[in-house]
Computed example of a mutant assay.
Amino acid sequence: MISVKSFYEKNGKIISFDPEENGEDITLKIKKLREELYKLSPNKGAWYTCIITVTSDGKFNIDFDYDEKPEFKYDPSPDKFIDDLKVFPRDKDLVPEWLNDILLKN
């Protein structure tokens, strides 16, 4: 359940691109990053959204969001979020409200 959006700004315009067009499996690397970071803080939950910003001078910033429901072009079924919680368990008090709502309905 990974969605990758890639874009850059040029002359004030936002241009989307496919980061995997050169054969790199970026999606797999992002999945692995999520798994490895979870191992550092088990039961705290894995992040749902990661925004990586790279500037033209090569500097970068990474923001991880552990609480907000991720945005997808098409929302995954509730079962996908439940499965994700099974793979990346969280302490009860760290389960976001939107995910608790899904759990209560299923």
Rank of each mutant, 00 (worst) to 15 (best):
D101F: 06
N100I: 07
K69L: 08
I2D: 11
N43A: 08
G12C: 07
V4F: 01
I26G: 03
F88G: 04
S3T: 04
D25H: 07
E71G: 13
I82E: 06
I62E: 01
K32F: 04
V4L: 15
E36T: 05
F60K: 01
D84F: 04
P42F: 10
D25V: 03
N100F: 01
E35M: 10
L37P: 04
I82P: 01
T53S: 15
T53F: 10
D79A: 10
N11K: 13
L99K: 01
L85K: 02
L28P: 00
S41Y: 15
I2A: 10
E9N: 12
F17Q: 06
E21V: 04
L94W: 01
K44F: 12
T55C: 06
L33N: 05
V87F: 12
F17C: 08
K86H: 11
D67E: 15
R90K: 13
F17V: 03
E21R: 11
I51L: 13
L94E: 06
S56T: 09
D83F: 08
E20L: 04
Y38I: 06
L37Q: 15
K32P: 00
K86D: 03
C50P: 03
K59P: 02
I26M: 04
K92L: 13
E20D: 11
F7C: 08
L103R: 05
K105M: 06
E9P: 03
F64D: 01
K105W: 00
E36A: 10
K39T: 09
P76D: 04
E36Y: 08
K80E: 14
E97F: 00
E9C: 07
P76M: 00
L40A: 11
G58T: 07
G45M: 07
V95H: 02
K59N: 10
S41P: 00
G45C: 12
S16I: 09
T53E: 14
I15Y: 08
L33A: 05
F88R: 03
S6I: 02
F88D: 08
K80D: 15
L103N: 05
P89T: 04
N106K: 06
P19K: 03
N61C: 02
D65F: 02
D93Y: 04
I52Y: 14
E68Y: 12
R90L: 05
W47R: 07
P89A: 07
K92M: 05
S77G: 10
F7E: 12
F72K: 05
D67P: 05
I15F: 09
P89S: 07
I52N: 14
K29D: 05
G12D: 02
Y66L: 10
D57I: 09
I52Q: 15
